[in-house]
Design a protein around this nucleic acid. Structure first.
Lengths: 273, 273
DNA sequence: GCAAATTTGTTCGTATGTATT
DNA sequence: CAATACATACGAACAAATTTG
C-alpha cells in the first residue's frame, strides 16, 4: 500500500521547499544528483519533479537546472466597480499587498483593432447570430512590467457603421474610457454588467505571453455590459494567469480590502477527521 | 524545429476528439494499439495521453482504458446575492443550462462542527490573532448527486461562549440560515460581504471527494461577512472544482442570466495576427 | 469464485537531442 | 568548442486494477 517512489520523492522535496530549506529562487540538485541521493533512476526523479511543477513549486530551465519558483505578490482585481464606471474599475482596483511598492504601475499596449466574425461565446452574449461581424479591440496589460492580463472587447459593428462611434476603429487607447465615449456619441448608458468567471488551460498565445506552462490555469472573465433597455452593448473577455492573479467581489457595504491581505498559504479547509 | 512526437500525437488525438470523431465517453485505442498506429514507443504514447489529460479531454481508468471525458453541464453560482440573504444565495443561485433537467437538486451533508485554532488566512480575515480558537462548520455539497463543493464556515468562539449563539455548535443544518439566526439571537446584522477568489490545485481530501486528478484546478472562494460596525462576523471558505463550476458576478441592473448560457467551447480571444 | 487475459501504472536502463554556460 | 543539464525517445519488465471466461 506504499505510495509509488516518485510520490515519496516529490513529497520529500515539497517538504524541503515549504519548510524553507530550499528557498525561493534556489536551485535544486541536478537530476543526476537526485538520482544518487534517492537511489532511483533518472526517469523516476523526473516524474517527481513533474509533480512539483504541476503544484507550481518549481520550474525547470533547459541547460540550467530546476529552481524553486519565486512567487510574486499577487495582483488583486476588484470586479465590482460602479456600473457607470468606464475603465477606472480595472486599473485602479489593483491592490498590492506591499503597499507603496515601486515599479508596479499598470501599463497597456496600444490596442489591435479588428473587424471579425464574433466568436460563438461572444455572439451569444451580444444576442447576435453566430458569425456576425463585430469590432474587437485587443490589448496586452502589464503591471510593473509583468504580463498581467490579455483583454479583448467586442462591440456590435452597427456602432461604427452608423457613423456615430467611429473612434472604436482607431487603434489608440481610449483614455477617457469607451463607456463614457459611447454615452457621449450615442446616448448609450451602461447601467450594469455581468462577469462570468471560468478557469481553463492557456492556449499557445497565452502560454507565450505570460510565460506559463501548457498545463497551468488561467481565469477567463466574460464581462457583458448592458444599457438602459437591458441590451448588451459590449462583451469584454479578460484572461488572467491564475498563478499571479486573484479576484475580489464586494457585495453591500464592506471595509477597505487592505485589511485582510493574505500571504500565499496552502488550503485551510479542515480535512476529514 | 519540428515539435516533439508526443506533441504531434496529442494534437492528432485532440483533433479527433474535438471533431467528434472520438465521441464523449468513447474509449481510445489502447496504448499498445496507439503504439503501432503511430510507430512510437509506449512511453511516448503515454506522454501524449498525459497532455490530453492535462487539457481535460480524456481520463484513464487502470485496467480498463482511456476514455474521452463526458463534460457535465457546469454548475453556475452567483456570488452577488443580497447582503441580507442568509443562505438562499448559494443554492438558489445555481442555474443550469438545460432548464428543468431532473435530478439536479442541491443537497448538503450534515455539518461537521469543530472548535479549532483558526487557519492563518481565516484568522487574518476575522482580524484575530493567529491560532485563535474558532467554531468551524464543514459541509459537503452535491447537485444531483454530483460532488459540487466543500464549504467551511468559521465563527468567532465568543459567539458561543457568550451563550448567545450556542446553536452554532449543533451538528445540524441551519435551515433558516446562520445569518438570520445571528441577527435574532445577537442582533448582528450582515450589511455586506467580500468574496476573494483564487485558484489552486486540490489537496488530498478534495481529490478524493471530487474525484479529480492531483494537477487539476479548484476555485477557492473566501467570503468574509461584515456587520453594521464593519466588523467581520464570519469567514466562509468554499472550494469548487473548476471542471464543473463557473461563477457569476452581477453589478448594477442586469437581465436574467439564462439569456446567454454558453456551451463549452475553447478560447475566443483573438490570437496574434 | 477463481484463473486468465487485458490494460494502465511504475521503474529501470540507455541513447540522443537541445539549450545554456 | 566543450561541459553541463534538461528534453525526448526507445525498449523492457513487473505491478496493480479490471474484465472476462
Amino acid at each position: 500500500m506504499a505510495p509509488p517512489m516518485y510520490h515519496q520523492i516529490a513529497d520529500d522535496l515539497r517538504e524541503q521547499i515549504e519548510s524553507g530549506k530550499l528557498a525561493p529562487g534556489a536551485q535544486l540538485p541536478t537530476e543526476l544528483d537526485l538520482r544518487e541521493r534517492y537511489g532511483a533512476s533518472r526517469n523516476t526523479i523526473r516524474d517527481a519533479i513533474k509533480r512539483l511543477i504541476s503544484l507550481g513549486l518549481v520550474e525547470t530551465r533547459p541547460g540550467q537546472g530546476t529552481y524553486v519558483v519565486q512567487k510574486i505578490d499577487p495582483f488583486v482585481t476588484t470586479l465590482t466597480g460602479s456600473p457607470e464606471a468606464g475603465r477606472a474599475e480595472d486599473s485602479s482596483a489593483v491592490y498590492l499587498s506591499e503597499v507603496g511598492k515601486e515599479g508596479r504601475r499598470a501599463t497597456v499596449s496600444t490596442p489591435r483593432v479588428e473587424v471579425q466574425p464574433a466568436p460563438a461565446e461572444v455572439a451569444l452574449r451580444l444576442r447576435a447570430a453566430p458569425g456576425t461581424q463585430v469590432v474587437s479591440r485587443h490589448q496586452e496589460r502589464y503591471i510593473g512590467g509583468i504580463p498581467w492580463s490579455l483583454q479583448t472587447s467586442f462591440y456590435p459593428l452597427e456602432f461604427v457603421t452608423s457613423g456615430k462611434a467611429s473612434l472604436l476603429l482607431v487603434a489608440e487607447d481610449m483614455v477617457e474610457g469607451a463607456v463614457k465615449y459611447l454615452e457621449e456619441v450615442m446616448g448609450i448608458k451602461q447601467v450594469g454588467y455581468r462577469n462570468w468567471i471560468t478557469a481553463r488551460t492557456p492556449d499557445d498565445t497565452e502560454q507565450k505571453f505570460f510565460r506559463i506552462p501548457h498545463d497551468s490555469t488561467v481565469f477567463e472573465v466574460f464581462r457583458t455590459s448592458f444599457d438602459q433597455s437591458r441590451s448588451p452593448i459590449r462583451v469584454t473577455v479578460t484572461v488572467y494567469p491564475a498563478d499571479r492573479n486573484q479576484l475580489i467581489v464586494n457585495v453591500g457595504e464592506v471595509p477597505d480590502p487592505m485589511y485582510d491581505q493574505p500571504k500565499p498559504e496552502q488550503s485551510c479547509v479542515a480535512p476529514a477527521p
